[in-house]
Design a protein around this nucleic acid. Structure first.
Lengths: 158, 158
DNA sequence: CGTTTTCCCATGTTATCCCATGATGTCCCG
DNA sequence: CGGGACATCATGGGATAACATGGGAAAACG
């Protein structure tokens, strides 16, 4: 099962187009969609994106909440209301909506970060800062890596 | 169950290509992947690599965390975002990304070290130095290796 | 109509394929 | 036991394809 992996920084042209990294494109395509689903993160200034599979599971997660609860409404308005289905053109590019770009503070370059089932789109420098912090915290969170099915011996991340 | 074993030093050509040792190649292939997954170690200046089995176990571990939790986000950024899927070409070579090479200080030669479920890629001289130290430490750590048939099952994975 | 989006083509760069070479290792047969 | 004959492997280089990127023209939209 393919997943989004790796980090790529691409340019945004005058028309607002940006190449979705070829590898991401093939993941989305393998899930049966000639595009990706994107929405603003509610945790920071970046964009969350995924193929149809994860997008569907988000819907399922929402359905587990009380349909009229304020929590569900809030989450749904961001995860669904603010989301966009971005189909890639014949050259594999997508058009990032102004709103999403503004949310992430993206001007003329965008960094795509693969995270497994989903990926994120960042303003390059902002990601650089986030990553530095993540690298540090990762050590602290390392304990999570040792859980149940345990990673093979020499443990990947300590 | 095959595992990565042995040490090999190969040259990197002008295009950045390097032969994955044939034995490593067959391990990856036996796990169903015509390539390997590599990422910068956050413990030192070398590259970590593995076949799909180990890589998938990392993905599964991440899937046990809530999809939007900061923990998952940070771990995935480091473990997946910084990793690269390197498929070998028809001659069994991989193309080491500039970033990984820089992290390991690799110029025109790379040393592959098998470690069982995963392997590492080092700048030859750097590995030489590490190995000398490892040999010494191994003496002290030797006690940690308990016989599998020893009485108390030493509880879980560490 | 004017604006935005989509399609199509051009270009430079990078990655991939394909073939050649030499070195090493393996196997078989005398 | 020795000596090829042959496979495997690492390595180099030229040719080809894939990719990111820019721009013009057609099409859709309001």
């Amino acid at each position: 099962m393919e997943s989004f992996r790796g980090r790529f920084t691409n340019k945004i042209d005058a028309k607002g187009r940006v190449s979705l990294p070829a590898k991401f494109r093939s993941v989305a395509t393998s899930q049966g969609m000639s595009g990706v689903v994107c929405f603003p993160s509610f945790q920071g200034s970046f964009i969350e994106g995924s193929g149809p599979r994860f997008a569907d599971s988000v819907l399922q997660m929402l359905d587990r909440l009380d349909p009229f609860s304020p929590e569900r409404n809030m989450l749904a308005s961001v995860l669904i209301g603010d989301s966009a289905e971005l189909m890639f053109d014949s050259d594999g590019r997508i058009l990032l909506p102004e709103e999403l770009r503004a949310h992430a503070g993206i001007a003329d370059e965008a960094t795509f970060v693969g995270l497994g089932e989903k990926f994120q789109i960042w303003e390059p420098k902002a990601y650089e800062a986030f990553r530095a912090e993540a690298l540090e915290k990762a050590r602290a969170y390392g304990d999570l890596l040792k859980s149940p099915t345990a990673l093979p011996p020499a443990g990947g991340a300590r």
